[in-house]
Amino acid sequence: MEVKALILAGYGINCENETAYCFRKAGAQAEIVHLRDLLSMERGLLDYHILAFPGGFSFGDDIASGKVLANKFKVSLFDDLVELVRSGGLVIGICNGFQVLVKMGLLPGFHGDYGAQKVTLTFNDSGKFEDRWVHLRVENSKCIFTKGIKRMYLPVRHAEGKFFTSQNVLEKLNKNHQVVMRYISPEGGKAIYPWNPNGSLEDIAGICDETGRVFGLMPHPEAFNHYTNHPRWRREKIRESGMKIFENAVKYIKENF
């Protein structure tokens, strides 16, 4: 079957091309769709199996990153979005896309209650935008996208990636296996700066909803689409890449839809 992925674009989103490339490489039919074409109903969310919110600076990160785009979705497309998830579709938010998912409350979506903001992503403790590669431990979670992955090495590129929430929500996330990945040191231990690049609570780099079908992460798997993206491909044999995340998504749809 044809797996159809919608890659959102427009208003300052800027990783749509490489995100679409990864989905295509993973075997999906990926279509880059401008937000305006969704708002004007020229394209319908429910015609797709996968929705990706790529990285970038939607609305310039003005006010707070992801906030304005999240509101736009909430005001006019939220019902379709929730329907897409409930009907078995997948949603991934990368970097700015993660910020959007969190701010519109699609994540963490406790008890299927989408729409309430429970966690946030805010300014890095360093006060800086930084582009650096980070080591990640993939937790045993419900997340569809990370099945079979234990470790990842990916770039982060953000100024507002510090994961924060209340103690209560944090406990729930842990208990529900919704924490998908954490920053770790190169040796696999507890990450301090710069290995935890932003000061995230409990080194959290990505979370999913209770179904495991909605996934948000700060690092950029689409920027590691080929071994030559790895900063040390001239020194080491590179076996893994960020592609696995996209392959898992396509595989899941093929098997479950």
């Binding site: 930084e130 770039p155 993206n229």
Partner: peptide, 11 residues
């Protein structure tokens, strides 16, 4: 480090 040198995916 404060410049994104990897966006567009072809680094």
């Amino acid at each position: 480090r404060q410049y994104d040198h990897e966006v567009q995916g072809g680094s």
